[in-house]
Amino acid sequence: MPSHPPTKVAILGAGRGGTALLDLLHQICTIEIVGITDQNPNAPGLQRARELNIPVYERMADLIRNHGVNLVMDVTGDPAMERVLHTQVLTGTDILSGPASRILWELVQHQSTLQTELLHAEKLAGIGSFAAGIAHDINNPLQLILGLAENITEERDFDTIHLQAQDIIEAVKRTTAICRDLTSYSRRASSLQDGEIAMNTKLDEALKIARYAVVLQDIEIRKSYQPDVTVKGNPDELLHVFVNLITNAVQAMESRGTLTLETAIVDGVTQVRVSDTGCGIPHELLGQIFEPFFTTKPPGKGTGLGLYNIKNVIHHMHGTIGVASEVGRGSTFTITFPRAADASEGSPRP
C-alpha cells in the first residue's frame, strides 16, 4: 500500500540467515531495509547488501540507534544478543531476536524450499507444451528408419543395403539427442551445482530446448555475444530462465519475426538481453508481469509463474531483470548481474 510509510528494518547478522532475509525483504515494497551489519567484514550478506544498494554498517550501534528504525531483526545466532539489544535499542523500536528469530529463519528456509518446488513444478508444466516438438523430432527420423528398413528387406544390391543401414544408424543417433536434452532439462536443479556459467553457451543451449516448445523455423535469430561472459549461479535454473524468455519472445511474435540474443559486459556489469519484434506489452501491464499468476495467455496455456520464477532466480543470483516494450514493436528483457564478488575485489580489468 503506497499510502503507508514503509516499515524500517535493520538486519543484524549477514551470514546465511541475513542473506536470505535480505533477498526476501528487499522484494517487499512495504519494507525498507535501512541497513545491515556483521562482526565479520567478509560475511556473504554484506556483499549482497552492497549489490542491492543497502547500507552496510561497521558498528551495530550506528545502525540500530538511528534512522527511526521500526524493527531490529537479529539473525546473528548469538544467544547473548537478545539481552544486548534490549539495553541498546531505542524505545519505540521492536526487536525480533532469540526464539522468534529462529522461527523466522525456519520460515525463510521453508519459503525458499517452496520457491524451488514452484520453479520445478512450473518447468515441468512447461515441458507439457514440448509434445508437438518432440513428436516432430522423433517421428521424422522414425519415418526415415522405417522406410529404409522396409527397403532393405527387398533390396538385393549389397552396396545400397550398406549405405541405407548407415543412414539408419545416423538417424538413431540423432534421435537419442532428444532424450539427452530433455532428461537433463527436466531434472531438479540442485544447489550443489552452483558455479561459473558461460552465458553464451547457456543461451545456445536454451535455444535448443525452446525449439521443442515453439516453432523457430520462421524466426530470424540474431546473436551478439561478447566472448567469455560468465556469471556465478545455478546453471539449471539459468537455463530455465533463458528457455522461458526465448519461448515468451517467440510466442509474442506468433512464430514470425526476429529474436535477438545479446551478452555484454558494460562497466563490470554483465548484461544479457533477449529481444523480440512481437506484439509488445501494454504500458499499463508492465508493472504486473513479474507478479505471480499474472498471465495474458488463455486458460490452460500458461501458469502465470514464468516471469515470477525468472525474477526469483535472477534475484537469487544477485541480479536484476527489467523490460522495455512497445506495443506492436516488441519487447526487450534485460538481465544484469554485478561483477562476481571475487572479480570485483581484484584489480580493474586490463
Binding site: 519415418q143 526415415l144 522406410g147 527397403n151 538417424a171
Partner: peptide, 13 residues
C-alpha cells in the same frame, strides 16, 4: 516436407 529425409523415403516408396 521440410525434411529431406522424409522426401527421400517417400520418393523411394
Amino acid at each position: 516436407d521440410d525434411e529431406p529425409d522424409i522426401r527421400k523415403v517417400v520418393r523411394m516408396t
